[in-house]
């Protein structure tokens, strides 16, 4: 895996939000954003800190009602501990709704509880990844995640 190489711009749809990051910890968010920016994805991601707001964005409702929901992101990174509606509930609603059930959702959580893991899979999560404690490790995990879901994983044409 070649780290530190920016994602070739032509591999992405122009002006398209590719990554939705739902994470309430500013420290973790900052770290994720740093990685995302380094990979040349400025403008391709959206950071949301609250479960309810995440649902609003994905369903283009309330504050996001004008956002054209033709923007199907390539992946949603979802923390479990969120203010407002919690991560598992967000996951449940996203995977139940026709409009969003095919969105790749990756839980990125510090929880290693088998309960959480099983529930996430029961709800249809695509992948469950635990957040390492060290920031360098978290950095490389995020990078690997972004590369996998943006470059390797294929989605149907929008």
């Amino acid at each position: 895996m070649i780290i530190n190489e920016p994602i070739p711009v032509e591999k992405l749809d122009p002006d398209q939000i590719e990554i939705v990051i739902v994470e309430d910890s500013s420290k973790v968010a900052e770290l994720i954003l740093r990685v995302v920016r380094r990979l040349n994805l400025a403008g391709r991601y959206i950071l949301i800190k609250d479960g309810g707001e995440a649902l609003d964005y994905l369903f283009a409702q309330t504050n996001y009602v004008n956002a054209a929901v033709r923007r199907t992101p390539r992946v949603v990174f979802l923390d479990l501990k969120l203010p407002g509606i919690d991560g598992l509930e967000v996951l449940r609603r996203v995977k139940l709704d026709e409009r969003t059930k095919n969105l790749p959702v990756v839980v990125l959580s510090s929880s290693i509880q088998e309960n959480d893991i099983k529930t996430a899979y029961d709800l249809g999560v695509n992948s469950y990844v635990t957040k390492p404690n060290q920031s360098e490790e978290l950095s490389s995990v995020v990078e690997e995640l972004v590369r996998y879901w943006l470059l390797l994983n294929k989605m149907p044409a929008r």
């Binding site: 088998e114 992948s127 990844v129």
Partner: peptide, 19 residues
């Protein structure tokens, strides 16, 4: 390369459910 990345992701990164 792709298979190698698949291995890295699904065997090392992803946490499967035990049951």
């Amino acid at each position: 390369q792709v298979v190698s990345e698949l291995r890295l992701y699904w065997l090392l990164l992803n946490k499967p459910s035990e049951s």
